[in-house]
Amino acid sequence: MHLAYPAVLAVLLFCVGLYGVLARRNAVLVLMAVELMLNAVNLNLVAFDAWLRDTLHAGQALTLFTIAIAAAEIGIGLAIVLLVHRNRGSSDIDRLRDLSEGGGPSTGDPGGGSREETSVTPATDNDTGNGPDQGVPESAAGRRPA
């Protein structure tokens, strides 16, 4: 088989995934496009392993590692997306502008103006490791109505 076929297919698939990452707005769809890019890389690895006839099978072993790391990445990524969705009520990437420079303060972002949940502590405070400090009063407050 000509090596240009899998190489060109991998390139085109990577560019389709690149377009998806840049153009999509929903965070879950961005993760899907990332999966496409990772699969393009895997296809390249397998094709070059078949071409080089490596005795160590580096290409196929690295493909297995990439698949496992991609599975871990999609799990963590979806957990983060769900956390952002719970905190902000939206998983649109365009609205998550707390770290943007000069585009307006975090209280006056276009997405946050219509939402009442942005006045709560931002998501970065939840991630900075003060879980025990927050967990105790929240669980105590949670027991009260129950």
Partner: peptide
């Protein structure tokens, strides 16, 4: 990650 959002 999922436990913390459940506790929240």
């Amino acid at each position: 990650l999922s436990r913390r959002q459940k506790a929240g």
